[in-house]
Each structure stands twice: as C-alpha cells, then as structure tokens.
Amino acid sequence: MGDPLARETEVFYPAFSELTINRLLLEKVLGYRAGGTPEVISRLIDEILPEVPSRTSVQCGFSILPIGAVSVSRETFTCDGVQFTTGPIIAKQLRASTTLALFVATIGSQVEQWARDLIDSGDAVKGYIADAAASEAVEQAADWLEKKVTERVRDRGWKLTNRYSPGYCDWSVAEQHKLFSLLPERFCGVELTPSSLMLPIKSVSGVIGLGPEVKRDPTVCSICDMKDCFRRQEEPAAT
C-alpha cells in the first residue's frame, strides 16, 4: 500500500467518538489522584463532557516523506533540503529512521472560545475544565493519527518512533516555520503566526520516525525536564 518513493499526504476527520475522553482521565489531567477529586469537580466534568463533541471539528493529517528525502545526523535532521536542529536527544531517537512523517492535529477553535466565554462570564471553573478537555482531546487526536500512520506503513515492515514536537527537549518552537513550509498551505486548517503560534490554539504538530529499525522509547519521559508533567511515565526501576 502506498509508494515509498512518493510523498504520501493524507488528512482525516475522525468523529469525536473515536477519542476516549472520560471523567477519570480528565480528573487526572486536572491533577487529582484517583479518588481525590472533589465531588463538585467531578460533577462539573460530567456537565461539560457531553457539550464538547458538538464544539469540536477534529482534523489531523500526516505527510510521509519519500525515502531518500530524509537524513538524520547527531543533532539535526533534513527533509527535502530543509534542515531542522532538534538537538541530540530527539535526533538520537530518529536516527534509525528510513523516512519521517510530519503531522498536525487540531480540534478547531470552538471549545477554546467556549472556555473563554465561560471564564469571562464568571464561570472560571467550568471554563478551565472545558479548556483542559480540549487540550486532552487534541493530544488524543494525535494518538489517533499515530494509529493511522502505523496502519499505513505496517505492510512495509516499518515501525514508528514516539512523536516529537518543536518546542520539546532542545528543539526550538521557531522551527515550526520550517515544518509548516514542508506541508500544504493551511494543512488540517491550521495556520502559523509569525510568532510560531498555531491557530487554532488547540493544535499540535511534529514528526515521527518510520522504518524497520526504529523503536518507541517507553522511557522517553526520562529525557524531559518537565518533572511534574502528568503525562510522565514512571521510569523503570534502575537495575
């Protein structure tokens, strides 16, 4: 399936029901430990969640570069002649890639606007929860997209690295401009401001390494310095 010598670009519009956002997950995102969420917060989450789907339009897409258009070195990678400086941490993870998939995912701007309206009308708690739900939704849209990429390259015997985004580890957010220069105009409906901000705000972008030799790194969190991140995976005990 697909021709590895040509650029393969595809955009998807998954239904919100393809994502799995529920109260327990959101409680965790908000910082609470299992069983430690105040009743009122759980109730507000229950009120908000059903309102989210009609306010989202999930769009996500990838562009897999042709083999030969990509090279990775110690601190950089190059796509179609555009060089990215990711620093050694990300480059190391991408090193074994045969090629790369660039990606973007968004849930649109409606939830964000709704959250802002709630806050401005004095309902900050609800607004904040809605905003957190939106952030979680866009992360899940990117997870969903990873599965599509996995399916796309499975027949070639390729696997995927984790996804990496400009703005993480030592990869500067300013390189968003390079990333977007390699994608179609307004890819997935997302545009980039001169200050490297994606609009809608609830969007993510990045790169995934593909190839027979690449590996997902379950300890990827250990390379990041965001010690308090709720997404942080426990590191395996040192042996």
């Binding site: 908000l30 009122v40 900050a124 904040y128």
Partner: peptide, 17 residues
Amino acid sequence: NKEIFVPDVLMSAKAMS
C-alpha cells in the same frame, strides 16, 4: 504545595469575588 489544583483555586476565587 500541590495539595490542591487549579479548579480548587478557581472555586475559592469565585467565593472571593
């Protein structure tokens, strides 16, 4: 001290206002 989280702060802010 991470004993409470943003939603709790916002509940208090609401009482405050």
